[in-house]
Amino acid sequence: MISCSWYPTKLLLLNDDIKIRVSSSCNKYSFCHFSKFKKENIRPDGRELGEFRATLLNVGTINTAHGSALVKLGNTTILCGVKGEFAAPPVNEPKKGYLVPNVELPPLCSSQFKVGPPSEQAQVVSQLIDDIVRSSNLINLESLNIAEGVVLSGGESVYFFCVGTGVAPGFACCWGATKLPERGPKALSKLSWVLHCDMICLDYDGNIVDASLIALLAALKNVLLPAVRIDEDTGRAVTSQEGSIPLKLSCQPVATSFVVFDDTILLADPTKEEEGLATGAVTVVVNEEGDICSVHKPGKEGALYLPRKFMTASGDVSRDLRKLDSWLRKHWRVVKDDVPTGAYDLD
């Protein structure tokens, strides 16, 4: 008996309720229309200049990943999956683990991307997310460390970790040493977690950075890593299904992207068309205390906008910042607390 459910219970909360109000006077996006819109303070999709799109969040849907989250920012859809693996810690910082974010913009999400290695845009976004993670100290990497190692006599450090399976008595694989390691209490393993945070864009409609960062935060809050202990006798790592540990995030940065038109108009949360027509862009990353973690300002257009606008007390700016503030608070309400599995509407 096959049953088919027409209510999307699991992954994609498909927001049929977004109604796009298109102005009857224009059926093509073009730059001159934007000045028309500015006069009436409305955008082609019906939003105000500083208004953000409806956001949906669906957490913990991918069972094979240690943590996952799906974010829909209007039509822009990003799915973040976090998988933890074991590795030796970095040589220069043996007490730390790794957090490796990557944003993938596959040909699935838009016709502008081709099959093959990551496009420039994907590389830029990945690097930006990586910088945000580092500069905001998103997670204490030392908490990802499992075991520290021991230097053998002779000054030669042997890094290895043992694989134990139920079938075979286990073996040690080692690299970086010329001799097979001893077995015994001296040879403990250096081991830490690597969190691969892979964000896939499933639908590209602008503002990838914001959506990726929300997805990353929500997925990390959803992560449950299996408990690991080092068996003293064999030096093997042993994981168990019970006793999963959630991650502790030390900071929760949220990004907001704007595009600039002509040094005068600032649009928040741009769609793909707006991004394509804009003359400049700026992304501001703020943490929960309101401190700015990072500002990304590529290109020269709009460069004068920021200091001028931020220095003057014009109504536009304070309105923008207030809008930004309330939007950020709404997001934090969800990502701050323990995020159980489920779907949320952030409006």
């Binding site: 693996e85 990557n102 290695p117 990586d130 139920g166 079938v167 691969h196 690991v228 994981t239």
Partner: peptide, 23 residues
């Protein structure tokens, strides 16, 4: 070179399961 890379050699925690049952 086009992606953010972590360490070269990683192993899945599934190989380290305490009670990996057989068939």
């Amino acid at each position: 070179k086009k992606r953010i890379t972590g360490p070269e050699v990683t192993q899945s925690p599934l190989y380290f399961l305490e009670d990996s049952s057989g068939i």
